[in-house]
C-alpha cells in the first residue's frame, strides 16, 4: 500500500486552496454589503465596501505569492499542475468580483441622495441573490471537484443576464423623467456589474472543469451565441 508522500507540498497546495475559499467568502460578504448599500442608498455602508476590498486584495496577493512559491519550489505536474493553474485563474476572477463590488459602492455614493426606484431595487435584490448563489456554487463545485455543478453555472448565468436586460428596460421606462435620469444611468452600470460577477463565476466553473477533465473549453462562446 502506498503511503502519503510529499506531505509538505500537499499541505502547501491545501493552504492555497483554503485561502482561495476564504477569498471567496470575503467576496460574498462584499457583494451582500454592496447590494444592501445600493438598495438603501447607504453611502456609509458603501464606504465600508470600498475599504473592505483591501481584505480581498490581501488574500489575492497571498494566493499569488503562494502559487509563485509552489511553482518555483515544488514543480507540480499532472493534477497538481492543473490545480495550481486553475487556482491562479480563479484567484483573479474572485479579485475582479471584489472590484465590481467596489464599483457598485462608488456608483451608490454618487447618487446616494436619490430615492431608489422600488422596481429596480427588487431587480438588484434578485440579481444580487443570483450572483451570490453563483459564487457559492462556483466555490463549492471547485472544492468538491463537481463537474456537473460547475457546468450548471451556465444556466444560472442566463437568468442573471435576463435580469440585467430587464433592469435596463426598467431604466428606459423612466423616459423623460429628468430627476431620475442620472440615477438610472448609474443603475444600469450597477446592473452590469452584477451581471459581470455572474460571468466570472462561470469562468471559475470553467477552471473547475479544466481541473477535473484536463481540457480547457469555454462553457459558452460569447462571440458565437445565438441570442443578442
Amino acid at each position: 500500500m502506498a503511503s502519503e508522500m510529499r506531505i509538505t507540498f500537499q499541505e502547501e497546495l491545501e493552504q492555497v486552496e483554503a485561502a482561495l475559499q476564504e477569498e471567496g467568502a470575503y467576496v460574498l460578504r462584499a457583494l451582500r454589503a454592496a447590494v444592501n448599500a445600493v438598495e438603501q442608498a447607504d453611502a456609509e455602508l458603501a464606504d465600508e465596501v470600498i475599504a473592505f476590498d483591501d481584505e480581498v486584495d490581501g488574500r489575492y496577493l497571498a494566493i499569488q505569492e503562494g502559487i509563485q512559491s509552489l511553482l518555483a519550489r515544488q514543480t507540480p505536474v499532472a493534477v497538481d499542475l492543473r490545480l495550481v493553474l486553475a487556482m491562479l485563474h480563479a484567484n483573479l476572477h474572485l479579485e475582479r468580483m471584489g472590484d465590481y463590488c467596489v464599483t457598485i459602492a462608488k456608483l451608490t455614493k454618487l447618487v446616494a441622495d436619490v430615492e431608489p426606484d422600488e422596481g429596480l431595487v427588487q431587480a438588484f435584490e434578485e440579481m444580487g441573490q443570483r450572483a451570490e448563489e453563483m459564487i457559492r456554487i462556483a466555490l463549492d463545485s471547485f472544492q468538491r471537484r463537481d463537474l456537473e455543478a460547475a457546468s450548471s453555472l451556465v444556466d444560472l448565468d442566463e437568468l442573471i443576464d435576463r435580469a440585467n436586460r430587464r433592469a435596463v428596460e426598467r431604466v428606459l421606462d423612466f423616459g423623460g423623467d429628468i430627476s431620475k435620469r442620472e440615477w438610472g444611468l448609474r443603475m444600469i452600470l450597477v446592473s452590469r456589474c452584477l451581471e459581470r460577477i455572474g460571468d466570472h463565476a462561470v469562468d471559475i466553473g470553467e477552471q473547475t472543469a479544466f481541473l477535473i477533465t484536463g481540457e480547457f473549453r469555454e462553457f459558452t462562446d460569447a462571440s458565437h451565441t445565438a441570442g443578442p
Binding site: A18, L28, G66
Partner: peptide, 16 residues
Amino acid sequence: MDTMGAVAPIEIAQAR
C-alpha cells in the same frame, strides 16, 4: 443588516 460587520461573519484562518 446595514453594516458589513453584520454580514455573514467568517472565520479568518491564517492561510499560510
